[in-house]
Design a protein around this nucleic acid. Sequence first.
DNA 1: CGCCAGGTTGATTTCGCTCAAGCAATGTGG
DNA 2: CCACATTGCTTGAGCGAAATCAACCTGGCG
Lengths: 242, 242
Amino acid sequence: MSAEQHVGTLANCFTCQNRDSTEWCVLSPDELKRFNGSKITKEFLPGQVVFHEGDPVTGVYCIESGLIGFRKTDAEGNTTLIALANPGRTMGYRSYLAGEPHSTSAEAMKPSRICIISRSTVRDLLDHNPALGFQFLRTVSRDLGEAEEKFHQGVTLSVRARFVHLLLVLKERYSVVGEDGGLTIELPLSRQDLAAMIGTRPETLARTIRALENDGVAHFSGRILRVPKVSALFEDIDLDYL
Amino acid sequence: MSAEQHVGTLANCFTCQNRDSTEWCVLSPDELKRFNGSKITKEFLPGQVVFHEGDPVTGVYCIESGLIGFRKTDAEGNTTLIALANPGRTMGYRSYLAGEPHSTSAEAMKPSRICIISRSTVRDLLDHNPALGFQFLRTVSRDLGEAEEKFHQGVTLSVRARFVHLLLVLKERYSVVGEDGGLTIELPLSRQDLAAMIGTRPETLARTIRALENDGVAHFSGRILRVPKVSALFEDIDLDYL
DNA sequence: CGCCAGGTTGATTTCGCTCAAGCAATGTGG
DNA sequence: CCACATTGCTTGAGCGAAATCAACCTGGCG
């Protein structure tokens, strides 16, 4: 398996663009050296899997570039996209810290470079630098807040409202403001994956998109999305409550 | 507000039944003394609120006895019961650690005694005892795993399957094994709250209960639930997949 | 050129929500 | 002690949102 996956040119944490925005920003130069020396860097093509749901945890993973999606699969084979992770995010730490196997699969959505840090190195760093533990404590706590919010939305809101919520999240990271004040978003996901993220079927999503077009809220062509008025998105969510 | 809420007789952490099963089990005698001396104990009657969604975090709360439920309310006034917490659980730590206001309201479901530990004390203990941080790291990580699992189930499974899943969880804590191998569960929740936990309406839950009765999977009378064969619950979940 | 995966559209069915009424248990005031 | 509200639970009828099934595009790609 993973024939095309290979070790890339060695990444260097000292020059890594993302470092200051990660949990590892609290490492001392000495610790960073240890961290940098013991990691492995691999590259993944879209569709390739970094780790599988149920796998034992062998280390944690730091995204240098690309985009990773987390999937859960149920007995039927239905797959739900739980979350996306961008460069600078560390992954696998939840299962590591909980002492459980991986609860999701991690799959490259774009070509991605991933640094792998072994259990023992992480253990060592956590033991000697309490600040690192606090960093992860904050990250996990925030993730938990988001997860609870998503559960609440999932059972409470309509597909349309959930989709608009998703667009509002994606806008934060993938949108460009146009000259006229409108937004252009390059969606990083296929229709299938967009549907999976809000727990619906591709057919239903297509109809929802069509409805948004008809209402003039947004215009879709392929993965390019134009939103003339951002406020229209917020208003749209409220409409469900009338 | 909270007129009936009052400070009870002083609880003592040194003799607390729950201590060894909480995150605080790693405190040294000295630290425990500090912890014990700075806490306040209050009692809450069913329906009374310990803290509200959106409130700033003033400390963390340790449940000595009773049962607490966490609710989220949306713009419509729909309320979802996110989780239950039993004696020994600490609450409010998620928001404290994330540096956010409370993301849920906490409400007593039974008469409950709660110990309140101030921010500054928690801060102090965390700073001086790294092991305490690890304890919370594990707790939050496990909570996160459960929350993701619940989201996945919420958008994937039918009401019936979600309800059976809930029964399987409640069984762990509230069931008694009968002489014939069957189970008796005393549900700690009203129908309304059971419905809120799986994100549905009381009417739909009533119909689901009736269907389970008709299929001989379980028998409900008030809050008492009899399950002749536990395996029937597991089989029932699988039926949805045919 | 034909094949295939991803996406859209239409027709039909199913599940769960809404609205409305009835009922049992509990509480309250006269 | 009884008339009566009140609250929580159940049941029925109708409706609407979304899943399912099925056909049909489209744009790569061998």
